[in-house]
Amino acid sequence: MLKDITLGQFYPAESKIHALDPRVKLVGTLLYVVSLFLFHNLAGFLLATAFLFFLIHMSKVPVSYILRGLKAIFILMVITAIFNVLFTPGTTIVHVWKIRITWEGVRAAVFMFIRLTYLVMGTSLMTLTTTPTRLTDGMESLMAPLEKIHAPVHEVAMMMSIALRFIPLLVDETDKIMKAQMARGADFESGNFWRRAKSMVPILVPLFVSAFRRAGDLALAMEARCYQGGEGRTKMKPLVYGRNDGKAYAVLWIYFAAMILVRIFLNLPHVPLLGH
């Protein structure tokens, strides 16, 4: 059951999106998320939609995979929508007892719903098309300027990649410990929430002990292999921008500029969204 946990849900495929430099994808995701909060009208919405589906099509990742990420935040989205509908002042459409639904509220709810959906889809597209190693490499490289203010960028990236390597091991170990405790009569499934939480203690204690032991061993092994931090380190797979990366940046900025232009020039605040 613990095996179901997936982290860094990479979807292997050969596409132009997969082959892009991770930095392009990180910057692109950031720009896309910002652009989602720029549009206030149908034109912007259409542009953002077209761009997203164009990328999904290019990436060869099935849409169902990308939609999977939505499950986790569905409740959050519904609550956000309800709040928007109920608490936005404006032209009233329905007024029952103390509940007042306004036209502006519905509009804001629909936009917020779309924004959150696209936000999750956009970020999922990035994690689905980039291996965790490349992702941490990309972050390390993008954050490199922060080293000037003594932010431990290399160390954080190293920690992330080690964590990614050890998660499956620790998951396996948890499974083993649980089975060992179950074999001796431990019960993890019955009782109320508190009882169940309490029964996790005999799993967590040995798990922590073993994690610390592993960490000690690993530190020793890294030292034995001359690890001395990021300084003077070379890379087997350094990040190098290719031709497609330049093109991708161009496409990204054109899209972003278009979104800004749409916001400035096509800003017709009273155009109803779904026809009237």
């Binding site: 061993d217 001359c226 070379t234 087997m236 797979k237």
Partner: peptide, 29 residues
């Protein structure tokens, strides 16, 4: 080389793990 095979492999891919040592001592790519 240490006793526990799991606790001395650093990277998530075999070739990247083998590269860890040379990377640390600054060997060109």
């Amino acid at each position: 080389v240490f006793q526990n095979p799991d606790n001395q492999i650093i990277a998530g891919i075999v070739e990247e793990d083998v590269a860890f040592g040379p990377e640390n001592i600054g060997v060109p790519t």
